[in-house]
Design a protein around this nucleic acid. Structure first.
Length: 457
RNA sequence: GUGGUUGUAGCUCAGCUGGUUAGAGCGCUGGAUUGUGGUUCCAGAGGUCGCCGGUUCGAACCCGGUCUUCCACCCCA
């Protein structure tokens, strides 16, 4: 009895057309990464559980795919632990490995393990799949690709400036105009929480603030109240909820609000440095905007926070994110090494480009010429020409079977192959080829030289 | 993880208040056309109605469970 095949929830197969388009995006990103001086690394699909666990917060731990130990793993669990039937206690005993959840933590682990082999500052890029045990939605999968570029070992804010340029360069080269690079600073968020006396509720505060565009000022207020932040405290920062203005105006308002917070003012300074860099150096197609409500990845970011929003007409979550983390490698024992990096969400960029019809025609080009098969003798003649064409850089194929012409022509038609060559006994005698241009239906009987020229043209 | 939603031919979908052998369009295969595709015409193949169980004389249709899809929340690329 044959079983009905299927793939796990949130995973996908990719057909030839999709893979070609995905490769186009990856290649574009990779080109820019290398132009900016990043070097490639790869890390294993799975890590030791304790490398990953606890690095992404409580929510993150839940979303990490754990790998069941091999062998008779249950017999090694102490009976009293097993009897508790507490998944949180039992899991670490029976799942010592877990699938990679992002590329940043494995990179931090890599830096610490290879600290004596790498020269700081170290700029690396990494394009690999990651896995999350999330519930799938549009643009949200359980297996997806991240394309990360990070630099460790430099505190310079010029890195942040370059990452903004890198975002701009990639999206410009993908012909995706109108993306918004949102920037914020964790120190500003911390300063705000400090000023309103809610430093202990920093995460609740920022998570609520992050929802502003979704639930509105009243929604944010309600959520903050619900988390135990007082009415008077909220009133102090309420101007932020409704504030619109230029980047400079936003920073002015923040300077007032944060005048008593050293940390907050430091954050403003950092933000200003980055913005100043773009005063006489413009971006190509992206817009850089300060967004105080941006609070992603709070678990390890300590300075700048980035997020890239797709053009407004596309309903899609962010297509990229990143930020600075002053002490990421500290958890693995290497102190005082700062890192900053960004990530591109390949799968979401794909959906956006598809929706906007931005894949260039050239990425879909496949076989350019198909030689029909009229039998073994004729094929012998054809394959020689096929070989010559391939050596000339032309994608050429010989139909493998001596099937009916209708079938072979149909195949070329469905595959959208622009040229077909017919070479039967007559052509062989004359040392010619009959080239058919599928689009127009025109045919020419010509020699090899002209054949190659016409296909190239 | 919480709440909702979806599933019928390869694809997009019909299928009435439960009632014989479950339909259409497109696609597919063959033929009209033995060296000529796209158009046309003719014929044909293809479904245990997501899966398991229940109610019923009788279930694609009602009920329960489960898987899947999509959506909202949570969170995130």
């Amino acid at each position: 009895m044959a079983q009905k095949p299927g793939i796990p929830k949130g995973t996908r197969d990719f057909g030839p057309e999709e893979v070609i388009k995905r490769n186009y995006i990856i290649q574009t990103i990779r080109n820019q990464f290398e132009l900016f001086g990043f070097l490639p690394i790869e890390t294993p699909s799975f890590e030791n559980s304790d490398t990953l666990m606890g690095k992404y917060g409580e929510e993150g731990d839940r979303l990490i795919f754990k790998i069941l130990n091999s062998g008779d793993f249950l017999s090694k669990v102490r009976p009293e632990v097993y009897e508790l039937k507490d998944a949180a206690k039992l899991a670490p005993k029976i799942t010592e490995k877990a699938l990679r959840y992002d590329l940043t933590v494995p990179f931090a682990r890599y830096v610490v393990m290879h600290q004596n082999e790498i020269d700081l500052p170290f700029k690396r890029y990494q394009i690999q799949p990651v896995w999350r045990a999330d519930r799938p939605q549009k643009g949200r999968f359980r297996e997806f690709y991240q394309c990360d570029a990070d630099v460790v070992g430099s505190d310079s804010l010029w890195q942040e400036v370059e990452f903004v340029q890198l975002y701009d360069a990639v999206f410009t080269n993908l012909n995706l105009q109108g993306v918004t690079i949102k920037i914020n600073n964790r120190k500003i968020l911390a300063g705000l929480a400090e000023v309103i006396g809610a430093s202990d509720k920093l995460i609740d505060f920022t998570v609520a603030l992050d929802k502003l565009d979704k639930i509105g000022p009243d929604g944010v207020r309600d959520e903050m109240l619900g988390k135990g932040i007082s009415e008077t405290a909220i009133a102090k920062v309420a101007p932020l909820f409704t504030f619109t203005g230029s980047n400079t105006e936003k920073l002015e308002l923040l300077s007032d609000l944060l005048s008593s917070s050293a940390e907050g003012l430091k954050g403003i300074e950092e933000l200003k440095f980055i913005l100043n860099a773009f005063e006489d150096m413009s971006l190509q197609t992206a817009t850089l905007t300060v967004d105080i409500t941006l609070a992603r990845g709070l678990n390890y970011y300590t300075g700048a926070i980035f997020e890239v929003a797709a053009p407004e007409q596309v309903k899609m979550g962010s297509v990229g994110g990143g930020g600075r983390y002053d002490d990421l490698t500290g958890i693995f024992g290497l102190k005082g090494v700062s890192g900053v990096g960004i990530s591109f969400g390949l799968d979401r960029i794909y959906l956006v480009l598809e929706e906007l019809g931005l894949f260039p025609d050239s990425v879909q080009r496949n076989t350019q010429v198909l030689f029909l098969n009229f039998g073994d003798e004729e094929s012998k003649y054809a394959i020689k020409a096929v070989t010559r064409l391939r050596r000339a850089g032309i994608k050429a194929e010989l139909y493998p079977d001596g099937a009916k012409m209708k079938k072979q022509m149909n195949f070329a038609n469905k595959r959208a192959i622009p040229f077909v060559v017919l070479a039967g006994t007559q052509e062989i005698t004359d040392q010619q080829f009959t080239l058919k241009e599928m689009h127009t239906g025109q045919q020419f009987t010509i020699d090899y030289r002209e054949l190659e020229e016409r296909i190239k043209a």
